[in-house]
């Protein structure tokens, strides 16, 4: 599949970006992105069962519009495991100290109903280039 030139790389990037934009603008079904911090620290704090539980809950609720992503560490070690919920066009919400049960609750209430889950939200006080 090798990328043969910079132009090819650029168009691949643009295509991938557009895919995300489509998702973001809600034009396709899969428009909510749930990111679970799964670096060593997150996993140590129990991120794996959280991830499994959330995917399971979404399947049970037959939610077709959500993508679950395993990601690295966001740096909030004090509140691992962390889960970020991104609705297209909205400020991402970061949850900390998420247990499997809390993960299910986030899927039920936030992902499905758009309701924020009390007491689990933490700040994400940084800027990214």
């Amino acid at each position: 599949m090798g990328i043969k030139s910079l132009d090819e790389l650029k168009s691949l990037r643009d295509k991938l970006k557009t895919d995300i934009n489509i998702r973001a603008s809600g034009e396709i079904d899969s428009n909510i992105r749930v990111v679970v911090g799964m670096a060593t620290c997150g996993i140590a704090a129990g991120a794996r069962p959280v991830f499994t539980a959330m995917v399971d809950e979404a399947r049970m609720l037959e939610l077709g519009n959500v993508t679950f992503v395993q990601s690295g560490c966001m740096g909030a070690c004090h509140s691992e495991p962390t889960v970020e919920v991104r609705f297209p066009g909205l400020e991402p919400i970061l949850y900390g100290n998420v247990t499997a049960e809390a993960g299910r609750e986030i899927v039920r209430r936030h992902v499905r109903n758009g309701e924020l889950v009390q007491n689990l939200i933490i700040g994400r006080p940084f800027e990214t280039v």
Binding site: T40, C41, A44, A45, A76, C77, H78, S79, E80
Partner: peptide, 12 residues
């Protein structure tokens, strides 16, 4: 250092 300093002290 396991690198899970947020969980200190840690036993594995």
């Amino acid at each position: 250092c396991v690198g899970a300093c947020g969980l200190a002290p840690v036993v594995m």
